[in-house]
Design a protein around this nucleic acid. Structure first.
Length: 669
DNA sequence: TAGCCTCGAGTTCA
DNA sequence: CTCGAGGCTA
């Protein structure tokens, strides 16, 4: 065989193999045996070995997995992967329908698509000119991990889109779910048991663990599969309905779930729910409910989205798995804000593979209302399949030995009296030097979104405070190498790492530092807002409550909290000491050009690309001003979808009215 | 003043 | 992830 013959054969084999993959995985209708398939694959491997110049990233041979990586890169989603709002009861589904119809201003029932909600992990694949170029996990919705090489090992995922139906879109981002079948999961665990390896708790964890393998050749051996149900950015084709999308995907080689159904009106969607709930056992993969989506994409656009979820879809979940157990005891924890939280210690039970041994009871009201007592047999569930929750005691099983529980009136850690402000459900230890509060404050300070001090874990903080080495946040920066190395389980090396991390953390942005201080009601977001409105702590300290509350998103409660924090001597001392030990904060490096220079904006209605407050922040960052009502001083009214009464006001005032597009042009963002 | 939307805070397990 | 509560809009 000469070179050009080899090239031809290689291409032929690739096509043939992918064709068989398609027939096997998408159509579920294989035409050759596994042995024949393996033979083709082996032949291709040999040829590629012999003629390395014809190797490519999208050859089926790549599916066996490339060499291990050190870590995953992170990649941004061009459009965020939102999550779905959940419903557990039929009533909530009816409310969903009403909401949707109200927002669209129609009385007519819409067409929906109901699909099973797979219990796997969401991914996004990017096909450029039909070739798989990148695979991303959902991550936090905005940024995920690049798992392209692992994705390629999944045989049912096409490396190249099929194109017999005409042109393939030049850019196609598709979204779907990677999962593991229940049977494959079981077999895999049996094998792992034989090999003495740790078992996976459930198929979901197994799928997630497999996809996040640094060594793709490990992923290649895991029985993963995928269904697709959505798109991200698409260029070169327009979809008008979910139905069209679900019909089109298999044509280009993407698997869609066979249980998806078109529903005329919400009632039919509810029927799909009941039907699938009955079928749940016999479906070969785990599903935890159904997803109901508005079919028409134009309507979807009109409905828009909230920050975390679209308004045009809802997840209708099956009842979560419950279990019966006993409350052995109730412990009390003290948080950063001094909140006393009762935690039930449970007789360990397994739900969905995880062994549950504790569950928060939140506060005294919750305990009283549910009448939960120590020694009670209770029903628990994992809310959202994650966080354990006590539903209710089984009173029939009481023996009379159960004890009612009352939160103590003195802090279990420092012994000072506990207060419960009127109208508040939370008991609080108000002693700001309570060791528990100091510990939590320090942990918060060192956390990722705050000063990000690597190596400063919970255990270490506990020890530092207990040993008396650290009494305040500033003390962290006064630790010396010997002190640290002398602690249990800490050596020279760990001490050095910690010191380095501390040193690095001294350079910090103003907003992170504000957040790190742990001012009540001031989280990441508001810390950011504050850092944009004040240059430094000097400015912030001088701010009166009125000045603070005039800032968007800061109301009386938050204003008070900030003023109080900065009026407190020990807090002021902390800020001073941080400065003394060398913590240098700076306003965010990215100083935007002040192109708007005092221009006043008012927003009304809904914008596509920003939330109201994002748009307002943006304006302020660019040196403009965003106000809430139209006056003669207003330069522009930016009108989004469904503008409110401000629209008419602006017309009366003769204020210039612009749409989102024009706004974007104006700010060039 | 109600209802919607976000943010903050607290939480569990592997 | 969920709950409660603060802030904003209608």
């Amino acid at each position: 065989m000469d070179r050009s013959e080899a090239k031809e054969r290689i291409e032929e084999l690739r096509e043939e193999i992918e064709e068989h993959n398609y027939r096997y995985y998408v159509l579920d209708d294989p035409t050759i045996t596994d042995r024949e398939y393996d033979r083709l694959l082996r032949e291709l491997e040999e040829l590629e070995e012999e003629y390395p110049e014809f190797r490519t990233d999208i050859s089926p041979t790549q599916r066996v997995g490339a060499s291990p990586a050190d870590e995953f890169e992170s990649g941004e989603h061009r459009t965020p992967m939102l999550s779905l709002s959940n419903a557990f009861e039929e009533r909530e589904i009816t409310e969903f329908r009403d909401r949707v119809q109200r927002k669209l201003g129609t009385e007519d029932e819409l067409t929906y698509i109901a699909e099973p909600k797979l219990d796997g992990l969401a991914i996004e694949l990017i096909y450029e000119n039909g070739e798989l170029s990148e695979g991303l996990t959902r991550g936090d919705g905005r940024t995920g991990e690049v798992v392209t090489r692992n994705i390629k090992t999944i045989r049912s995922i096409p490396l190249k889109l099929r194109s017999d139906g005409g042109e393939v879109p030049s850019l196609l981002e598709v979204r779907g779910e990677v999962y593991m079948e229940k049977g494959s999961f079981q077999k895999m665990n049996e094998r792992r048991a034989e090999e003495g390896k740790d078992l996976f708790a459930n198929p979901r964890n197994a799928a997630a663990g497999s996809l996040r393998q640094l060594d793709p050749s490990v992923t290649a051996k895991r029985p993963l599969n995928a269904f697709f149900y959505d798109t991200g950015v698409v260029e070169g084709r327009e979809f008008t309905t979910q139905e069209e999308l679900l019909n089109y995907f298999p044509d280009i080689g993407l698997r869609v779930n066979p249980y998806a159904e078109k529903c005329q009106g919400i009632k039919e969607a509810k029927e799909v729910y009941s039907k699938l709930e009955k079928k749940r056992e016999e479906i070969p993969y785990e599903i935890d409910g159904i997803v109901i989506k508005v079919n028409d994409f134009n309507l979807r656009e009109e409905l828009g989205a909230k920050t975390r979820s679209p308004r045009w879809a809802i997840a209708y979940k099956f009842p979560p798995e419950r279990a019966k157990t006993r409350i052995k005891d109730i412990e009390v924890g003290v948080g950063r804000t001094g909140a006393l939280t009762p935690v039930a210690k449970l007789e360990p039970v397994e739900i969905k593979g995880a062994t549950i041994s504790r569950a928060s009871l939140h506060n005294q009201d919750e305990i009283d209302e549910k009448d939960v007592r120590i020694g009670d047999t209770v029903i628990i569930q994992r809310a959202g399949d994650v966080i354990p929750e006590v539903i209710k005691p089984i009173t029939e099983e009481r023996t009379g030995d159960e004890e009612k529980f009352q939160l103590p009136d003195h802090c279990p850690v420092c012994g000072e009296p506990v207060k419960r402000p009127e109208g508040d459900a939370i008991h609080r230890c108000v002693n700001i030097s309570c060791p528990a509060r100091i510990k939590e404050a320090i942990k918060h300070f060192g956390s990722k979104a705050a000063a990000d001090i690597e190596g400063l874990g919970d255990k270490l903080v506990d020890k530092l405070v207990e040993e008396g080495l650290v009494e305040s946040i500033a003390d962290l920066y006064r630790l010396d190498r010997k002190e640290i190395a002398n602690l249990e389980r800490m050596g020279e090396k760990s001490a050095e790492n910690l010191l380095n991390a501390l040193e690095e953390s001294k350079e910090i942005s103003f907003s992170r530092l504000i957040y790190a201080l742990g001012i009540r009601h001031v989280g990441e977001h508001l810390a950011n807002v504050l850092s944009r409105n004040f240059a430094d702590f000097e400015g912030l300290k001088e701010a009166k409550k009125e000045e603070l509350t005039s800032i968007n998103e800061i109301g009386p409660e938050v204003g008070d909290s900030i003023v109080n924090f900065l009026a407190n001597d020990s807090n002021l001392k902390l800020i001073e000491q941080l400065d003394k030990v060398g913590v240098k904060y700076e306003r965010e490096a990215r100083e935007d050009e002040k192109i708007l220079d005092g221009t006043r904006f008012v927003f009304t209605g809904q914008l596509d690309d920003y939330t109201r407050s994002e748009a307002e922040d943006l304006v302020e960052r660019l040196g403009g001003r965003a106000t809430s009502s139209v006056s003669s001083l207003t330069d522009y009214l930016v009108a989004g979808e469904n503008p409110g009464s401000k629209y008419e006001e602006a017309q009366e005032e003769g204020t210039e009215i612009i749409n989102e597009e024009q706004f974007k042009e104006l700010i060039q963002h």
